[in-house]
Nucleic acid binder design. Structure first.
Lengths: 214, 214
DNA sequence: GCAGGAGTGTGACAAGGTCACTGACGACTC
DNA sequence: GAGTCGTCAGTGACCTTGTCACACTCCTGC
């Protein structure tokens, strides 16, 4: 499937849209690391299709999922380098095959000056990330593991099944694999889920929802 | 002391600067709560003097310091409401007497379209916050309390003294008062600090620096 | 002097993170 | 088919951190 860049950014004026459509999207296979910590970034990146996940890695090697970038969203962190003097501190990995456009720095600044629609897009991208990061801080600082796990399971389930290893779930909620194993075991004992190698079947979504909120 | 708004925002063109200087700053006494969770925000707020601290409160009543806003910086969170449809999720409190300007929504959007300098200011404000929030996530998720405490002490010390109660330090590092008391006690036993009611004397800054990095 | 509040100390316990190790499953080679 | 290797999951021991309950010590204002 081929996306025009502008198709992902509704509300753009025609001139801006056609400028963006002249950019050549990149195809990126699943598993590719897009940025590494400390790397310099040279443009504003928009995801056209696929899913990019951005992780933070602790000194102990433990990871936590900072946020996911879906079609029409920007990998905002990559933009920080364009604006401040900061460098990238997360690691971005293509979770699925992706198509991206990179808007070079000069064009980005130019569009920011010329197009109110483009500004709106960039701003709401910032606002969205800011909000989700604030929520992440809230979760990590205050929520119990059980609640975060239940939430992650509900969020990632498709037809009642979550396809992920315990280690992957641990990264998503920012915990350790062993802890996830034990919690899942406890949930299974209470009949809320059924465990299989590499996946989790959800048996009682309502109970999980209750847990996620507490 | 009276600040012109534009004096805090270097690099502005003359027209923008004079527009901003026409805004009337607000004086806010120490201790005032500027925003509450869920409140709607109507403008872009810039701190001219003083210090505003933004907290997140957990369901258990525990607080954590999200970030501090110092002169020339913006309370970016307050802007999210202007851009997305989100409402405010933190609580902002004037730590000292403050002077603020609030740039109304319409003027803000107008300036964003007209002034590259203003855009630069807004963007670097975003970038700065984004970076500091990323670092906060890293700390909360991965760092030991001891390291966070050491860092907080070094950061807040003036002439080798930190004027803060254990409860205040706990909020700064996002932990519980009792934990801070015990850690401080351990540091005191090792000769790195000396404890007094309401303050901490730093005795061995180098050792603390070592702890903060580990 | 003493009542009350703020700041601090402490013990007991629960939750979560770390380490070391085991077993179970699947794919691949020989 | 047996052996090998890597990924995934389970488990016990132990440490750190968070929570709860309560006692103690200053300081301040009557």
């Amino acid at each position: 499937m081929v996306w025009a860049a502008s198709a992902c950014l509704p509300g753009l004026d025609a001139a801006t849209a056609s400028t963006l459509d002249r950019l050549v999207p990149m195809a990126v296979p699943a598993g590719t690391a897009l940025f590494h910590p400390g790397e310099e970034v040279t443009g504003f990146v928009v995801v056209l299709s696929g899913r990019v996940e951005v992780f933070l890695t602790g000194p102990s090697g433990r990871d936590i999922l900072l946020y996911a970038v879906e079609p029409g969203q920007s990998c905002v962190q990559s933009t920080l380098g364009l604006l401040g003097d900061d460098c990238y501190s997360g690691e971005a990995i293509a979770k699925t095959d992706c198509r991206l456009v990179m808007i070079p720095r000069a064009l980005f600044l130019d569009l920011m000056g010329r197009s109110a629609g483009f500004r709106g897009f960039v701003f709401s991208a910032f606002a969205q990330r800011m909000k989700s990061m604030t929520q992440l801080i809230e979760k990590v600082a205050f929520q119990r593991i059980e609640a975060r796990l239940a939430e992650a399971l509900l969020e990632r389930s498709q037809d009642g099944t979550v396809t992920a290893t315990h280690a992957e779930l641990a990264v998503i909620i920012g915990s350790a694999r062993e802890v996830v194993s034990r919690r899942l075991d406890a949930l299974a004992r209470r009949g809320m889920v059924r465990l299989e190698r590499g996946s989790v079947q959800i048996r009682d979504a309502d109970a999980l929802r209750l847990l996620a909120e507490s």
